[in-house]
C-alpha cells in the first residue's frame, strides 16, 4: 500500500529532472561506429571490389531485400553484376553484414535516408559501393581463397604450397 504511493512519488520526481531526449535535427547525436544504419559495399585494401557475389547476404536477409547477380570478370574475379538493396524494406538488422564472408557489406552509422518517394529508396551498386575498406581494414578475400585470379597464381594465396606437378614422382 505504501509502496504504491512511493511509486507515485518517484514518478512525480522524474517530471522535474533533465530530459534525455536529443532534439535531433538541431542537435546531432554522435552515433557509435557499430550503429546499424545505411548499408555500403566496401573495397579491399587493394582497391578491388570486395563483394564476391556469394549470395549469402541475400539468403540471410529476413525481408529478402537484397538482390544480386553473380558474374566473373576478365581477371577471374567474381563480382556482382548488379547489387540492389531495397531500403524501403530493409529493417537494418545487420544479418547481411554478419553473413558476409568478405567484409564487403557493412552497416554504417548513416541514418539520414529519408525520401519522399519510395522508389528512391532502391539503391543500386553504384549507390552502395564506396572506395574504402569501411570498418574492417586489411582483409582481402582473394589473398586467402584458393581461386586463381589475375595477379595471383594457383598456390600463391596465404598458407598455400605451390601447385602440385602431377607428373613428379618425388614423395
Amino acid at each position: 500500500m505504501f509502496s504504491l504511493f512511493k511509486g507515485l512519488w518517484i514518478v512525480l520526481r522524474h517530471a522535474f529532472v533533465k530530459r534525455v531526449t536529443v532534439e535531433y535535427p538541431e542537435k546531432k547525436p554522435v552515433l557509435p561506429p557499430r550503429c546499424r544504419g545505411r548499408i555500403i559495399l566496401s573495397r579491399d585494401p587493394d582497391g578491388g571490389e570486395r563483394c564476391v557475389a556469394c549470395h549469402l547476404c541475400s539468403a540471410v536477409c529476413p525481408v529478402a531485400c537484397i538482390a544480386l547477380q553473380a558474374a566473373e570478370d576478365a581477371h577471374g574475379r567474381r563480382y556482382p553484376k548488379f547489387f540492389r538493396i531495397n531500403f524501403s524494406r530493409c529493417i537494418f538488422c545487420g544479418l547481411c553484414e554478419e553473413a558476409c564472408p568478405t567484409y564487403a557489406i557493412q552497416l554504417t552509422p548513416g541514418v539520414e535516408m529519408g525520401e519522399y518517394k519510395r522508389q528512391h529508396l532502391v539503391y543500386e551498386k553504384e549507390d552502395l559501393l564506396i572506395s574504402g575498406v569501411g570498418k574492417y581494414p586489411g582483409y582481402n578475400f582473394y589473398r586467402v581463397a584458393g581461386l586463381q585470379i589475375e595477379g595471383k597464381d594457383k598456390g600463391a594465396a596465404e598458407n598455400e604450397q605451390p601447385p602440385v606437378d602431377v607428373r613428379d614422382l618425388m614423395p
Binding site: V11, L12, H14, A15, V17, K18, R19, V20, T21, E23
Partner: peptide
C-alpha cells in the same frame, strides 16, 4: 507521460 519519463 513524456514529462514523467524524462522525454519531451
Amino acid at each position: 507521460l513524456a514529462l514523467f519519463q524524462e522525454r519531451w
